[in-house]
């Protein structure tokens, strides 16, 4: 099961980035997905279109976005005085537990 969710995530990312062009590779996945989900073969037919629309929408959204590579996630700034957060991130630093980080 873990392997299957993993592979699904892969196609999702590829699909997200490249839109429907990654469809050939996704069809193979969908086939063995269909047993798990209640996706009938008819849904395959609709998928690409929905994908296309979604991609189009994304493009429209991007129409006037500033051409800048800088991406600073201000919305997600956390309060790093929180003890729990500090402990969670501790192992990404050399001061943390090395064996823990090596995993």
């Amino acid at each position: 099961l873990a392997k299957r969710t993993f592979s699904r995530q892969t196609t999702n990312l590829m699909q997200l980035v490249y839109g429907k062009s990654s469809l050939p590779s996704s069809i193979g996945i969908e086939e063995h997905d269909s047993s798990a989900d209640e996706e009938s073969d008819g849904d395959d037919f609709f998928k690409p279109k929905g994908d296309g629309i979604k991609k189009h929408r994304v493009d429209v959204g991007n129409w006037n976005v500033e051409d800048s590579s800088k991406f600073t996630n201000y919305s997600n700034v956390k309060d790093w005085n929180d003890k729990k957060l500090i402990e969670d991130l501790r192992d990404r630093f050399v001061t943390g537990d090395w064996s823990e980080a090596a995993k």
């Binding site: 600073t72 997600n76 700034v77 309060d79 990404r92």
Partner: peptide
């Protein structure tokens, strides 16, 4: 904080 976010 942003940098710590990137590290995380």
């Amino acid at each position: 904080s942003v940098l710590l976010g990137e590290i995380e």
